[in-house]
Simulated scan of single mutants.
Amino acid sequence: MKTLDPRDRSAAIAAAVFLVIFGAGFMFLPRAMLYLGTISPYLAAAVGTLFVLAFFFVFWLRARYQRRR
């Protein structure tokens, strides 16, 4: 069995953390949007939009980092 290179291990840990954080966030997002929708529908839409944009922002940052390497 082949062992992981330290860089590969680091990337795997980062991917797992990313999946856990955003997976939990997307799991609780509908409940949070319903709660925020009672305060303001615009606030709920803004929070949902920002969360989805943050998901793609992480990929954009990763692509910029990889391009420089």
Rank of each mutant, 00 (worst) to 15 (best):
M1Q: 03
K2H: 02
K2Y: 03
T3H: 07
T3M: 09
T3V: 10
L4M: 14
L4A: 13
L4Y: 06
L4D: 08
D5S: 15
P6I: 11
P6T: 12
R7I: 13
R7A: 14
D8T: 14
D8F: 05
D8S: 10
D8I: 09
R9K: 13
S10G: 09
S10L: 15
S10E: 12
S10W: 11
A11R: 12
A11V: 11
A11F: 09
A11G: 00
A12M: 14
A12Y: 04
I13P: 00
A15F: 12
A16N: 03
A16C: 07
A16G: 12
A16I: 13
V17Y: 00
V17T: 12
V17A: 15
V17P: 01
F18C: 03
F18K: 05
F18Y: 14
L19T: 06
L19Y: 00
V20H: 00
I21Y: 05
G23F: 09
A24W: 09
A24I: 15
A24K: 03
G25E: 02
F26Q: 02
M27T: 09
F28K: 06
L29Q: 04
L29K: 02
P30G: 07
P30M: 13
P30T: 09
R31D: 05
A32G: 00
A32T: 13
M33L: 09
L34F: 05
L34R: 15
L34V: 07
Y35D: 04
Y35Q: 04
G37T: 02
T38E: 10
T38D: 08
I39H: 03
S40V: 06
S40L: 06
P41V: 10
Y42P: 01
Y42S: 10
Y42T: 12
Y42D: 07
Y42A: 10
L43F: 05
A44S: 15
A44I: 05
A45S: 13
V47I: 14
T49M: 13
T49H: 00
T49P: 01
L50S: 07
L50F: 10
L50V: 13
F51H: 05
F51Q: 04
F51N: 01
V52S: 02
L53N: 00
L53D: 00
A54F: 11
A54W: 06
F55Q: 02
F55E: 01
F55S: 01
F55V: 06
F55L: 13
F55A: 04
F56C: 08
F56T: 12
F56M: 11
F57K: 05
F57A: 15
V58E: 06
V58T: 10
F59Q: 08
F59A: 12
W60K: 08
L61K: 13
R62C: 05
R62K: 10
R62S: 11
A63N: 08
A63I: 14
A63D: 10
R64E: 07
R64L: 15
R64G: 08
Q66V: 15
Q66G: 01
Q66L: 15
R67D: 07
R67S: 07
R68N: 06
R68L: 14
R69G: 05
